[in-house]
């Protein structure tokens, strides 16, 4: 289970991207999301793909690993493809069965939508692959801080996301512990029929939920016992530093964003 779930895991290769200020990476991801939304033609998607692969190469993590991150969503992508095929009509008729017909425009729209999804999910994995949850959190807080006058509780939000991110692997581990114990007592998920499999997985819900609450309580107690208070002034062990590298990184994304938007207009 662990091996399959790559999202949310740091893969430290020590590349320059790993060392960037998390705020730069977060900004870049937002810009990337804009690009994915704006890229509606094959040309735009091609440009975006080249750009993505270049950026991925900078992190020294193989592209294959990024694609694996998108793998858990393959059924959702297939679903999007099928819905588009049904919904969008126009162009030439490719297949006709009775009154229903698959149009070239539908297939094209479906393929583009699915491809955009792959790009979005696999590329944004770059953020978690290259940034530790702690840094990510600090980055998020740094970005929300200027908005605090509007009433956005930056510190609370970043604390919440930080804990949530930290809990994903912890809860998976907990589920896996129970699954292993069950397998060892003769109920191996890999060897069970589908119906039994579902029953075994639902049996996990209660202990894993209870485990998560227990963990949360322990965490709260241990943070409070070490003097953590919401809103108290705190210093940083590693302050965020925005240097030239960060500016260039974001500039590359801004530029690419303009290119994609420009392609969209012409």
């Amino acid at each position: 289970m662990h091996e399959k779930l790559l999202i949310g895991r740091l893969i430290d290769t020590g590349s320059p991207v790993h060392r960037l200020d998390p705020r730069a990476k977060l900004t870049a991801m937002l810009l990337y999301a804009v690009m994915v939304v704006c890229a509606r033609s094959w040309l735009a998607l091609l440009c975006l793909m080249v750009f993505s692969v270049l950026m991925m190469a900078l992190t020294r993590i193989p592209v294959r690993t990024y694609l694996k991150a998108a793998k858990p969503l393959r059924f959702l992508m297939l679903f999007i493809l099928i819905v588009q095929c049904f919904a969008v009509k126009g162009g030439s008729v490719l297949v006709a069965v009775g009154s229903w017909h698959l149009d070239s425009a539908g297939l094209e729209a479906g393929a583009i939508a699915a491809l955009r999804m792959v790009l979005l999910v696999s590329f944004t994995a770059l953020l978690t692959f290259t940034t530790s949850p702690g840094q990510l959190n600090q980055g998020l807080e740094g970005m929300l801080k200027p908005l605090e006058w509007t009433g956005i509780p930056a510190e609370r939000l970043s604390l919440m996301t930080g804990i949530a991110l930290r809990f994903i692997p912890a809860i998976l581990d907990e589920a896996q512990t129970i699954l292993k114990a069950q397998a060892s007592r003769g109920a191996d998920l890999r060897e069970l029929p589908w119906k039994e499999k579902a029953r075994m997985l639902t049996a996990l819900l209660v202990p894993v939920t209870v485990g998560a609450f227990r963990r949360a309580e322990d965490l709260t107690a241990s943070m409070e016992s070490r003097g953590y208070r919401i809103g108290a002034p705190r210093t940083r062990y590693r302050p965020l530093v925005w240097g030239q590298g960060e500016s260039w990184f974001v500039a590359a994304f801004v530029l690419m964003c303009l290119v994609i938007v420009w392609i969209g207009f012409y």
């Binding site: 512990t177 129970i178 292993k180 114990a181 060892s184 996990l204 209660v206 202990p207 485990g211």
Partner: peptide
């Protein structure tokens, strides 16, 4: 029969 580390986390039935 295998008793895992932290066996107290392995009970799951009602």
């Amino acid at each position: 029969g295998l008793v895992f580390q932290f066996p107290e986390q392995q009970l799951f039935a009602e």
